[in-house]
Amino acid sequence: MNFSTPAGHANPDLYIGLMSGTSVDGVDGVLASLTDGQAPQVLASASLPMPENLRRELLALNEAGGDELARAALAANALARLYAQATAALLQDAGIAASAVTAIGAHGQTVRHRPDSGYTVQLNAPALLAELTGIDVVADFRSRDVAAGGQGAPLVPPFHAAVFGAQHGRAVLNLGGIANVTLLAPGQAIRGFDTGPANVFLDGWCQRHLGLPYDADGRWAATGQVLAPLLEQWIASEPWFGLPPPKSTGRDLFNMQWLDSRLAAFDGPKPLPQDVQATLQRLTARTVANAIDGAAANTREVFVCGGGAHNAGLMRELAYCLQRPVRPTDDLGVPAQQVEALAFAWLAQAFVQRRQAGLPAVTGARGARILGALYPA
Rank of each mutant, 00 (worst) to 15 (best):
N2Q: 12
S4K: 09
P6Y: 12
L14Q: 00
T35G: 05
A39M: 13
V42Q: 01
A46H: 04
P51H: 12
E52A: 11
R56Y: 12
L59N: 02
A60H: 07
E68Y: 11
R71G: 03
A78F: 01
L79H: 01
D93H: 11
G95L: 03
Q109H: 14
D116G: 05
S117F: 01
Q122W: 05
L123P: 10
A125F: 05
E131T: 13
E131I: 05
I135M: 05
V138K: 00
D145L: 12
V146K: 02
G150H: 04
A162R: 08
H168Y: 10
I178M: 10
N180G: 03
N180A: 13
I190R: 00
D203Q: 06
H209T: 15
D215P: 08
S237F: 02
S237R: 09
L243V: 03
L243D: 12
K247F: 02
Q257A: 15
W258S: 01
W258N: 04
S261N: 10
A285P: 03
V288M: 08
N290A: 12
V302M: 02
F303H: 15
C305V: 11
G306W: 06
G308H: 00
L318D: 07
Y320H: 14
Q349D: 05
Q356G: 07
A365F: 09
A368D: 04
R369A: 13
A373S: 14
Y375M: 07
Y375C: 15
